[in-house]
Design a protein around this nucleic acid. Structure first.
Length: 421
RNA sequence: GGAGACGUCGCAUAGUCCGGCCUAGUGCACCACCCUGCUAAGGUGGAGUUCCCGUAAGGGAACCGAGGGUUCAAAUCCCUCCGUCUCCGCCA
């Protein structure tokens, strides 16, 4: 939810933001109109209600004879109050639906446009080249006994897989490396629920345009999370938190579930795009004025992780039209995937400013003693998908894969993953 | 799965049977001031959240788990839902 007061004071900023996102600019004027309606309805209701309250005071202290007389008089007023109250809730739900559909105000500098209009901020390393024909991660995964896609689809259907043997260990090693990195930075480790209530899912902003991406269990009215961001954002919902000692930082580990509804036919091969995977996610609650610095901090930690895995990558500033409704700015880090001859997203970090917190009612107490919404930020620190880039990048001609140094301690010192057949 | 109890302004509680003196009382904690020679005790006052009007001072409305209903009037009566706890059964 955007800040309705700011909307009133500076609607042109929202028009510009909507335009950059390629979304409706007229929505801003609709929002201003429903806001006006809403406030008029509230004023009218409160005026009538105050009148009624005053009258009721008289009724309670009146004598019996007067009472009947007074009650007869006030009945009409009560009817008006009821109608006015209904008008208020109607106006409020219109307000919420219009204002709620306006995306977060983008941060200055975010490129306009859609998916292809990102700006590359920096690159690290050179795209890996080989003096032999490199194998893709599916082939390597089979040779190494690390990934079993056939049996994954046998038991669960397409986009499911087993990580087996060294593949399973590699994922755990990645998660542990990421967790240790987060721990060193003062993040609190969390293992989070993966099923959440509708209001939490809605509060994080995932039930908007992309709700068909999410698994839903109607029998229990619960949603399967696509990221532990959902649980971590909900963690402090309806709370007033203390940020005087700096941001609250959490590192959440969970399985993530995605329907990939709009991606039929895309990335069908391998484990690049799957229905279930594991992820270590960073989540920060920060003061709004600290949010941009925190965002840089998160992206910095992500870069450290990619470097630790000895991957080549680029950091991109996602264009406004490709941001989710909650994000005010988003940086993705894409690693070079040799057999695809392109960069593929391994991490994503979003600054949601106060948009998510306003929906989830997460506040802090400012110096003046007033409450105010906090800023929330999230970012990937490791996922199953990283295995794709690691296997492909560090493969050798015989199909063996060199283990990045930073991962070795988590694999009992293993330096080379060798084919099992 | 069965039975029962409960959900009140930070915490703890009163109020709910019998609707209006509840703009929700009290204790603790908190803040300011006063008193007192000392890390004690006492006194006075203040203090919640959200929203609306107003440049402001200020005024007004709503909030007793959530949402509906009855009524001139709901913390209080009725309905639905959510949550917590206890006991029993079953199963990891």
């Amino acid at each position: 939810m955007i800040d309705p007061v700011l909307l009133r004071e500076a609607p042109e900023r929202f028009r510009a933001s909507q335009a950059a996102r390629g979304e409706s600019v007229d929505l801003v004027d609709d929002a201003l109109a429903v806001d006006l309606d809403r406030r008029a309805a509230i004023a009218e209701f409160e005026r009538l209600r105050a009148e009624q309250n005053a009258f009721n005071k008289k009724v309670s202290s009146a004598s019996k004879d007067e009472k009947n007389q007074l009650i007869a008089e006030v009945q009409q007023l009560a009817e008006k109050v009821k109608i006015a109250g209904q008008a208020v809730s109607d106006a409020e739900s219109r307000f919420e639906s219009v204002v709620g559909s306006i995306g977060n105000l983008i941060i200055d500098g975010v490129p306009s446009g859609g998916e292809d209009d990102f700006v590359t901020l920096r690159t690290f390393g050179e795209p890996k080249t080989f003096d032999f024909e490199p194998r893709d991660h599916v082939e390597l995964g089979e040779m190494l006994g690390a990934i079993d896609i056939q049996r994954g689809t046998k038991i669960s259907g397409s986009r499911f897989y087993f990580l087996t043997g060294i593949g399973a260990r590699l994922e755990l090693a990645l998660m542990m490396l990421a967790l240790d990195k987060a721990l060193a930075q003062g993040f609190t480790p969390m293992i989070t629920p993966t099923l959440v209530r509708p209001e939490i899912m809605a509060g994080t902003g995932f039930l908007g345009a992309h709700s068909d991406e999410i698994y839903y269990l109607p029998a229990d009215e619960l949603y399967l999370v696509g990221t532990s961001e959902v649980a971590l954002a909900g963690y402090h919902s309806d709370e007033i938190i203390d940020l005087t000692n700096g941001p609250l930082r959490y590192a959440g580990w969970s399985s993530c579930y995605r329907r990939e509804a709009g991606a039929a036919g895309k990335d069908n091969r391998g484990i690049l795009r799957v229905h279930q995977f594991n992820k270590l996610e960073m989540f920060s609650y920060a003061l709004p004025e600290d949010a941009e610095a925190e965002h840089e901090h998160l992206v910095g930690l992500q870069e450290e992780m990619l470097r630790a895995c000895e991957l080549s990558y680029r950091v991109i500033d996602i264009a406004a039209g490709d941001l989710g409704s909650s994000a005010a700015r988003k940086f993705d880090i894409e690693a070079w995937v040799p057999t695809q001859q392109t960069y593929r997203e391994l991490t994503s970090t979003s600054n949601c400013t106060t948009y998510q917190a306003r929906r989830l009612n997460i506040r802090h107490r400012s110096e003046s003693g007033k409450t105010a919404p906090v800023a929330t930020l999230n970012g990937t620190l490791a996922t199953t998908r990283w295995i794709v880039a690691i296997l492909e990048t560090h493969q050798q001609e015989d199909g063996s894969v060199k283990v990045p140094r930073a991962l070795r301690p988590y694999l009992g010192g293993l330096e080379l993953i060798e084919p099992v057949v």
